[in-house]
């Protein structure tokens, strides 16, 4: 059976990030490039690495069985996928003689737009539901309204993308742009996962990892910005 929800999520994600790139073109490309050209390879590599990571942890015997590997709804490890996509983007920068970290920082807001749109597309995957609330969505077969946590996570990610883009334009160091993007997405995943309905009370692996990543990336962002301000002070004194 075709997973229309997932397919729709991918279409919407690609369309939204393409639109974002058209409206606010990335700055590390000398000439306009198709958004698909930019996103396809990192996206695919991220997906494959994320899926293989999940299989390696949960079901190593399934590695090599194409039918099992293709069921990406069974799980894609988010952060290994993000890391792999970032490495591919950095490598593309290196090839184009652009600083790899600058290239990653340039594309980070677009990746955040893609993530935010994918989360918001939970409407099509039946995965938005949070606690009962006076306003929200009513799943088929239920009379209770539930808070659309997935939609809120999507909106938060889009707002975070705008913030990161702005900080990038305001001259934040590329390292701080990247780490703040990671910290914000980690924060959104950490907080959102608390409210998303789940079977059983335990934190999921992704939830635990996101908390660690959010804290580590926040510390890194703070350190980079602190170092930068110290250097500025030193330069003024010099």
């Amino acid at each position: 059976m075709i997973d229309y929800g997932l397919l729709m999520s991918v279409i919407v994600t690609l369309a939204a990030s393409s639109l974002a790139m058209r409206l606010r073109p990335p700055r590390t490309y000398n000439s306009p490039v198709s958004a698909l050209d930019i996103m396809l390879l990192p996206g695919l590599v991220g997906l494959v690495v994320g899926r293989l990571s999940t299989l390696a942890i949960d079901d190593p015997r399934a590695i090599g069985q194409v039918s099992d590997m293709l069921v990406i709804r069974s799980g894609v490890e988010f952060w290994p996928g993000v890391a792999a996509a970032a490495i591919v983007i950095a490598w593309s920068g290196h090839r184009a003689q652009v600083s790899p970290i600058e290239r990653v920082a340039d594309l980070a807001p677009f990746a955040m737009v893609a993530y935010g749109t994918y989360e918001a597309a939970c409407l099509f995957r039946d995965g938005c539901y949070g606690p009962t609330s006076p306003v929200g969505l009513t799943p088929n077969g239920l009379s209770t309204t539930m808070l659309p946590v997935g939609l809120l996570m999507g909106a938060s990610a889009l707002a975070a993308a705008a913030f990161v883009r702005r900080q990038s334009l305001m001259g934040w160091p590329p390292g701080a742009v990247v780490s703040s993007a990671v910290a914000l997405i980690g924060l959104i995943l950490s907080v959102g996962s608390i409210w998303l309905l789940k079977v059983g009370g335990e934190l999921s692996r992704q939830h635990r990892t996101s908390i660690v990543v959010a804290v580590a990336a926040s510390v890194l962002t703070g350190s980079i910005l602190l170092l930068r301000s110290r250097r500025r002070v030193e330069q003024v004194h010099a």
Binding site: R125, D126, G127, C128, Y129, P139, L142, M146, K198, V199
Partner: peptide, 8 residues
Amino acid sequence: SEQRLAAV
């Protein structure tokens, strides 16, 4: 989805 299963 996990959310739908928990909800139902």
